[in-house]
Amino acid sequence: MTTAQKSGSGTDTIGNHGTGEGADESAGSSAPGAALSVSVWRGGPGGGRFHDYEVPARESQTVLDVVSWIQQEAEPALAYRFACRVGMCGSCAMTVNGVPRWTCRTHVQRVAANGRLQIAPLRNLPVIRDLAVDMDPFFERWTAAEGRFHPGTTRHDPMAPVDPASPARREADAAIECINCAVCHAACDTVAADPDYLGPAPLNRAWTLLNDAKDEGRDAILDAVAGRGGCLSCHSMGSCTRHCPNGLDPMRAIAGLKRATALRALRGRR
């Protein structure tokens, strides 16, 4: 196994990470036996810088494999977060070559630019340490968007029928597979510009509940998403939809919420 080489590189701060797709998408050609040049952001809330490592290239290697190799072989104190490694838990998202991604399902060969990787924490969330960000502000927005089930019946009432073919259920189904990875949150420029903005994932969740035949919190949801920082703050730039690793379309969900709030306002109810 190649010995990791670590050296400090130029200073950089977390505020400088962009999310735009760039030259990083050029397919890398890391042959087995070759080494990857990996820059990993290390630091805390006060700032930090990138550290350089050489990591052995492997076949079918993911970015999470690279980070885990660095932590296990070169930098035991490296802080990062992961759990399932199969794209279900949503805990391993990081900024890879300037783009927010789920690292467990991102193959190095797809994103490395000439054998180089730059790995940083997610944008728009406070850094705890190294690659681990504080997810509290993200989940607080889910609460603020009424992203919870609002039951209206008891165990003694009959169950509300759910027609899988109904337009509302189809809208809910199309948006329901969110894994809370916060990639959309990191990709969104409105989140970066407006601290009050709820963000794509919480609004996407609110849209699924608004279309759920069993949820009886329609007015509460619309009150939450029509207010300050709600769906009307979205500029439809589409970064959320472009970067969602699960292929969801939060921008469509937010457009649905805009229609619902506008219709309610037209009817003079708010």
Partner: peptide, 12 residues
Amino acid sequence: MLTPRLYLAQRL
């Protein structure tokens, strides 16, 4: 920072 009525006014 829009209210639903401002949003509607801008679209209309």
